[in-house]
Design a protein around this nucleic acid. Structure first.
Lengths: 291, 291
DNA sequence: ATCGTCTATAACCTGAGGTTATGGGGAGTT
DNA sequence: AACTCCCCATAACCTCAGGTTATAGACGAT
């Protein structure tokens, strides 16, 4: 039984006549008549009795109708689904991100996107650099947004823009509130360092090594905003990305640029074989425009 | 999205390649390729990315697949259903009948039919003459089997055969166990009559009127086998159809033919506009052969 | 009789979906 | 680098399901 058979059968059964079914389906009456004959021939039994020029459903038709009706409704759902998918009104965007993006950048972009596309579901979670590969390969997220990530084979990169490392310090410590600080100056202050490895930590370490500076790493943290909050409590100074710094501002700390800027990139990673869905691409375009 | 699109999409998605899908569907590879392109064109978005000559499902495809899979399974069920209907292996036979047929005739026929067609469900109930019209018009049963029913317009009749009225009497009352009794003899015995109206009652009343006989109707019952059971307990004699009589036989009663036989017909009634289903017709043919 | 309604049939057209043949790109092997 | 295998896309072609209009027959109602 072809889909057209089911459609036509359903239409005739519900409207009660071939003529009405033809109107409902917006085709000619002979067309419906012929499709019905063909369906009956193929099935091997009559669906309707022709009595006095009218159609009367057979018991076989009654039995089949139950099934046909279910299919008929599902056909409608798939076409609705297809329509919604095409119009970006259905779908899921699942992104993983470094915690730093979770304060302002992503929330702002998500809120903006959802104003336009209310049926899109977001799936957001934070992840650390070392988990990226595993995470993507297991399809836990479609895309991961990170600071200067390593390249992996089989994983594509999207460039969103760049950011700078900044120094966050307690105002008590530097009451003159400098807007620029050289990395050499930091030697004299206790430093809350943002973990041993990771792209941003490497950036700082490289700079220190190159300039033959020894930083006083008194506390090591893995999550950047914790470093800033430690500074708030006077535990020392820290070097973090500007986004984390800005999002955690308060009265007793201040932000200074580095004399010699340390720039990092912001990139999205996703599986090379699995291209991004249209909705996700649209969202990432919006996100990119924030830079 | 046409059914073929769904089938092809489903096959590609599950097998992972156009080539395998073509094998699965028993068509050529270019055919599948073309149907997929057509589906994507009509949908307005890609279902698979062609990366390095291979197909990778898009996120849109993932979303659609959930729906497609449900439809796909449904399509299979309707074709199974159609097959079973054609082979009389699916369906329902709903018959209403006078209680008299419920002892041997119908149970025997049903049991025999069900040996051959185990998936046919029977729906059997008894009904009284006056309810027939209402019953059929409300589609409560497909066919009603009755004694000498009236004709109604819009209702077709099927003739199964004939039966005779017989006299059931307690052996104590007539110890010589006559095998024939005239209706005149019955005047002397208390009679359990089988209701005022109804075809069989009319038959008896007409005979009595014609022969100017007054029967002693001491008990009136509506259900024939109750009359016979009253006879068993010595309450009198009764005139009932031969089928009820035979089915209720016991040691202390006997059956006698009437001197002048009173014959009635056994007919099936069904809606003229709604022809009988093949399964029901088959069953009724089997039933007819019992006479 | 006659009109309106419904179904079936005839004659015809179009395009979805099938075929075979062929070519190109990627991956693995020699 | 060349060879080979696998997979997909394209071209040229065919067929029939499913569409069209025109028409005729059957039935109910006026």
């Amino acid at each position: 039984m072809r889909l057209r058979h089911i459609e036509v059968f359903h239409a005739i059964y519900t409207t009660g006549s071939i003529t009405n079914a033809a109107k409902l389906l917006h085709v000619s009456q002979p067309s419906v008549s012929k499709v019905l004959s063909h369906a009956e021939m193929q099935l091997g039994f009559k669906l309707f009795d022709r009595v006095k020029g009218r159609l009367i459903a057979t018991h076989e038709a009654d039995l089949l109708f139950k099934e046909a009706d279910r299919i008929y409704r599902q056909i409608n759902t798939i076409n609705d689904a297809a329509y919604n998918i095409k119009n970006n009104d259905l779908g899921q965007i699942s992104i993983a991100l470094a915690p730093a993006f979770g304060f302002d950048l992503i929330p702002q972009a998500v809120a903006e996107y959802r104003k336009k596309h209310q049926n899109i579901i977001f799936n957001i979670q934070t992840l650390h650099n070392e988990e990226v590969l595993k995470h993507l390969l297991r399809h836990k997220s479609e895309v991961a947004i990170l600071f200067s990530p390593d390249s992996y084979s089989g994983i594509s990169e999207i460039n969103f823009g760049t950011g700078n490392l900044v120094v966050v310090y307690p105002i008590k410590l530097l009451p003159h509130k400098p807007s620029k600080i050289s990395i050499e100056e930091l030697e004299q202050y206790p430093l809350i360092s943002i973990s041993d490895s990771g792209p941003l930590a490497n950036l700082i370490n490289q700079e220190a090594t190159q300039k033959a500076i020894t930083l006083r790493n008194v506390i090591k943290v893995k999550t950047y905003f914790i470093a800033v909050n430690l500074v708030k409590h006077g535990a020392g100074v820290c070097i973090v990305d500007e986004f984390t710094a800005k999002s955690q501002q308060s009265d007793n700390i201040a932000i200074a640029q580095l004399e010699d800027p340390l720039e990092f990139s912001i990139k999205g990673l996703h599986l090379e074989n699995k291209s991004l869905s249209t909705v996700t691409r649209n969202f990432l375009d919006l996100f990119k425009n924030k830079f």
